[in-house]
Design a protein around this nucleic acid. Structure first.
Length: 500
RNA sequence: GGCGCUAUCGUCUAGAGGCCUAGGACGGGUGGUUCUCAGCCAUCAAACCGGGGUUCGAAUCCCCGUAGCGCUGCCA
């Protein structure tokens, strides 16, 4: 394969805030396609909207994309042979080709005012027509236009589009799509403030950057004919298009803050794994050929297939994302879990700034057992409260009921009595004692263990006691910011609480 | 309003005319795992938008309707 037909795709966000999962999905699909085909992935920043674009947003964008695990071969931060990669730095290019179109008579200056245009638009809408530009300035000569410009008048530049005919293209996910030229009208390519219009800038950039496949959201389908017309006017090769369906919220409206976390940044802060998010995002409109669904980024690259992308909109399902995250969590080595969990535990005030080896070792084991069934890292501190908190006064109804049952009081009295003089406690002692109580009272199983669980944890449910007891005992000897109470201390408190 | 796109379990989807008694996954229900919760395992319920064609045969192709979404900017 020579460089001429090497696949080149791009992700071209505008830096107007944090990156949304819908856009992240588009970025991912482009990246997967490029990586699988041995192509080039380009990052281009579309910052021509002076009103909304902000320099710092570009940093967020890059940070989010990198966090997701996507990398680009060319972009504003890494350079490349087709730069610059910020539209604001390509203004000269847009003007150059606009001039060419003007001189060839394929574009013209339009002096119509915004008010004038708005009036026509309303009129068209009222009559049920497609609001198409009237063509008022279409036949102004370039000389006259330049005279008026020199005299201080402002003008936008419009592309001269054939009045009738059909524009069609073969969309990789949608098949043949066609539009009637009568409904298109002459689009503005350069605004009167000198900035390029979106539909113009993308074409110049995609063409100059040798983009072969334009993979983007479905909301661009209606822009595509105008862009194709531009390619044709410039005599350039039209790329292949693939339009991805929209991502919706639970109520089938566009995904927004109302629906919960929607930005990549939010998911990262919630403690969702990047790989799980990519895995989930890949299922929005695509499905793997075999049944296996828990897939690494690398596996995704191998399996991805644009021809398997579905055409209908997908609703973002947090439950499935969490499930996938749990699956990816399980696959992580213990050290990695500790590394990722630590900030959340520190934030919650459970762990100090630099935990020593003993604490790290203990935390690693605790995380290993507590992370079962946890959706995301931000839920972990709550789980840790099982170890760090013990307050009989805060027991819920269920726990109280268990501990106050007739047989429970019997078990507890016996257990408390046997542990009264103990200086230390561990699981072996616990197991020995419960054996004795079982023999002495005949109480066993749930009746025996459940009250003891409540006595030791002040909760009705939690870790298996053979895991819980060693963790609490060892944890109580470590110097955490929030002291962990040992079992004997807990028993003393529960004894006082129950008045036994 | 116009134009475009879409339409399979609650959700993501498989399905490219007979392999469909419509498959999988999430979520839900039930049972098991002899301390709980979780996890895990097993199991159940759950869908082809409606109407016409085409065909020996349609979830799959065509038309109409309906619904949803997108676009309809000198935003991107």
């Amino acid at each position: 394969m020579n460089t001429e037909d090497k696949i080149r795709v791009r992700f071209a966000p505008s830096p107007t805030g944090y990156i949304h999962v819908g856009n992240a999905r588009t970025a991912l699909f482009n990246w997967l396609f490029a990586r699988q085909k041995g192509g080039v992935f380009v990052l281009r920043v579309e910052d021509t909207d002076v009103e909304r674009s902000r320099q710092e947003y570009e940093r967020n964008l890059i940070q989010d994309l990198r966090w997701l695990g996507l990398d680009w071969d060319e972009g504003p931060d890494v350079g490349g042979n087709f730069g610059p990669y910020r539209q604001s730095e390509r203004l000269g290019l847009y003007h150059k080709y606009a001039r060419e179109l003007l001189e060839r008579g394929q574009a013209y200056y339009c002096f119509c005012t915004a008010e004038e245009l708005e009036q026509q638009r309303q009129a068209a809408l009222a009559e049920g027509r497609m609001p198409v530009y009237s063509g008022k300035c279409r036949n102004l000569s370039l000389e006259e236009a330049r005279r008026r410009l020199a005299a201080g008048e402002e003008a936008a530049i419009r592309l001269k589009v054939p009045e009738e005919g059909l524009v069609q293209f073969e969309d990789l996910v949608r098949g043949l799509v066609e539009f009637d030229l009568k409904l298109i009208g002459d689009p503005i390519i350069v605004r009167s403030n000198g900035m390029p219009a979106y539909n113009y800038a993308v074409v110049i950039d995609d063409a100059l950057m040798n983009i072969t496949h334009v993979i983007r959201g479905e909301d661009h389908v209606s822009n595509t004919p105008r862009q194709i017309l531009l390619y044709q006017a410039l005599g350039w090769k039209v790329p292949v298009f693939a339009h991805l369906s929209m991502v919706m919220g639970k109520d089938n409206t566009r995904l927004s803050k109302r629906h919960g976390a929607t930005s990549v940044d939010q998911f990262r802060r919630d403690g969702i794994l990047a790989e799980a998010l990519c895995n989930y995002l890949s299922f929005l409109g695509w499905s793997p050929p075999e049944g296996r669904e828990v897939l690494s980024l690398k596996e995704l690259v191998g399996l991805f297939d644009l021809s398997r992308v579905s055409r209908s909109a997908a609703i973002f399902d947090y439950e499935k994302l969490y499930w996938l995250n749990r699956q990816h969590l399980k696959l992580l080595p213990p050290e990695k879990k500790l590394e990722l969990a630590l900030p959340y535990l520190q934030e919650a005030g459970l762990v100090g700034k630099e935990p020593g080896p003993a604490q790290r070792d203990w935390l690693t084991r605790a995380i290993e057992v507590l992370i079962e069934g946890v959706d995301k890292f931000s839920d972990l501190p709550q789980k840790f409260s099982l170890l760090f908190e013990f307050d009989p006064g805060k027991m819920d109804e269920e726990a109280r009921a268990i501990i106050q049952a007739e047989s429970a009081r019997k078990v507890l009295a016996a257990f408390l009595q046997k542990t009264a003089g103990l200086k230390e406690f561990n699981y072996e002692i616990f197991a020995g004692l419960t054996g004795e109580i079982k023999k002495a009272t005949g109480i066993k199983g749930k009746e025996l263990f459940h009250p003891l669980r409540v006595a030791l944890t002040a909760r009705a449910s939690g870790l298996e006691l053979d895991k819980f007891i060693p963790l609490v005992e060892e944890g109580s000897r470590l110097d955490f910011p929030r002291k962990i109470k040992g079992c004997l201390e807990r028993l003393k408190e529960i004894s006082a609480f129950l008045n036994l």
